[in-house]
């Protein structure tokens, strides 16, 4: 994927994802409407091609961190800020090289988000035994409905489901070996995020992780091209 196309695709997806977050946040915190409306306006600007809007969106991301004394929605807010930081650096970069470095950093972090997450699970005996996923369904605050807690007794879900998640996450760099393999890996990862969104209500994670995918598709092609040329 061409660098400028990947960058633009990320901007469009981020504009839509942050607009969704802003509208939801207005419904949650009506007194925060002014700055959330400003964020919506910046999303519209980014959507129609005003790349400089990422600076404002990043600044409002910092304000939100201050406002809520940390992320409001955990890792999804952190990923939002990371993407906005990378887009901001890419926008301000004096040369294409530095813009690519910033965007490449996002791709690397996306890979790390899977690999590290998989490794820490693999290192935990509770995950290897299937107990961890069982506990998520059994007593964590995450299941979106009470009847989902019954899945805690399904060994197929808690043991094999856990191993599929750990395997795909920890082995994610393997998908970088070929563009089609990467497509398959990203589809698998997106399905994982979709399941988390539907079963655990982590829908903001789903949309925001998808926003980082163009950076990795571009990075894989860039690295493969450099390898072939070298």
């Amino acid at each position: 994927m061409d660098f400028l196309l990947a960058l633009r695709l990320t901007e469009v997806m981020m504009a839509l994802a942050l607009a969704q977050q802003s509208l939801e946040q207005i419904a949650i915190d009506r007194r925060d409407t002014p700055w959330l409306l400003a964020r919506l306006a910046l999303c519209v600007a980014l959507l129609v091609g005003q790349g400089g809007a990422v600076f404002g969106l990043f600044a409002l991301g910092l304000y939100a961190l201050h406002r809520y004394d940390g992320p409001f929605n955990g890792g999804s807010d952190k990923m939002s800020l990371l993407i906005l930081a990378c887009l901001s650096v890419a926008e301000a970069a004096p040369t294409v090289f530095w813009a690519e470095m910033a965007f490449g950093y996002l791709g690397v972090q996306l890979v790390l988000s899977y690999v590290i997450s998989g490794q820490v699970k693999l290192a935990n005996p509770a995950w290897r035994r299937g107990d961890a996923l069982r506990d998520v369904f059994l007593y964590s605050a995450y299941p979106v409905s009470e009847d989902l807690r019954r899945l805690a007794d399904r060994r197929l879900v808690t043991f094999w489901g856990g191993w599929v998640v750990m395997g795909v996450e920890a082995a994610f760099p393997v998908f970088l070996l070929h563009p089609l393999a990467l497509l398959a890996g990203l589809l698998l990862a997106a399905a994982f995020h979709l399941a988390n969104a539907m079963l655990f209500g982590l829908h903001r994670f789903f949309w925001i992780w998808l926003c980082a995918y163009p950076s990795l598709i571009w990075l894989q092609g860039r690295l493969a091209g450099a390898w072939t040329a070298g």
């Binding site: 939801e24 955990g74 979106v144 209500g201």
Partner: peptide, 28 residues
Amino acid sequence: APAHLSLGQMLLRLIWNPQRTAALYLVS
């Protein structure tokens, strides 16, 4: 959490779920 959610409700909540997001913030 509700006793049950249909597949349609789960899909709809992919784009609009302020109550759930607010509830997760209470957990944080």
